[in-house]
Amino acid sequence: MSSPLLQTELGAVFDRRFLFVTGKGGVGKSLISAALAVRAARRGERTLWVEMSESPRGGHFFPGFEPRYELAPVQDQLWGMNLRVQPAIEEYLAVAFKIPFLTRLIARNTLFQVLTGALPGLDSLIPLGKIWYELGRRRGRSPYWDRIVLDAPATGHALAMLRFPQAALDIVKSGNVADRAREIDAILGDRALTGLIAVTTLDELPVDETRDLLSHVHDETDYRFEAIVCNEVLPNIGQDESSRYRDWLGGEPDTELDSLVAGDDASRRRLSWLEDRRCSQQARANHLSASQVPMFRAPWIPLTDEAELLDAMIDEFART
């Protein structure tokens, strides 16, 4: 896309020590966050990539890697984990209350699990608390991690996570939860440390959902999204010759399916279909730009294997 709306070079926000990456399900949030993590690791930074999923994708992106709660090496300078709430609660109880003897018994009690599952905010506090802990770890005089990339949950839960510190402090002013909420607030609000990044495709629903997410976060919290990564941006084949290219493709896009898949000139019509889709994307990018958050381009890559897709995306990011 030649549009100046979409920057092709990843900006300084992507160099923050903690990257919080969210987006609607299915837009390639995990792909983008994994590519950002590998990008950092390849520059020699000690990097942690954190998934938060019941069905983690790490094994698809990095063959041989098994995402679990325990940190594990993924490749040179890159470690990975799957941050599930339940094991995080066990760890949290052990650290916060110093009662390891009873911790397991308590945390694995079915009733306790059901209750903690229902407690509002605990599924925000616990994971963000773990991130806070990892950010604070030291190795001698330097931080243990140069970079942490969080593949955060999809927009709904991510919004709840970002609302959590304020919501918690409205209810409790002192005690364990209040302390944690203040720590997490300090991290999310520190714009030298943290970069909030939204991933979207330039399709109707994801764009609407991204706009909703940004306006909620900007209206209700002190935090700011500083980058939108637009994924699956279609190629501008015509480039400088765009209008002549379109003329040749036949002006109005052909909407009849049968003519797309059969006939003498099907290839040209398929390119016409692609060009039409690209123009819709451009229109949605315009629509999205109203949120006034810098937008970055991640190209559509016509591959289906997730490991190959990740490699190709890393190459794209490396070129910038």
Binding site: A96, F97, L102, I106, N109, T116, L119, L122, I171, G175
Partner: peptide
């Protein structure tokens, strides 16, 4: 009692108001 420890852990984790609501 284990349930007592459990209950107090919850209380410390969440605050008494939440326990009353539950």
């Amino acid at each position: 009692r284990v349930t007592d420890v459990l209950f107090r852990t919850l209380e410390r984790l969440t605050g008494a108001q939440v326990i009353r609501d539950i």
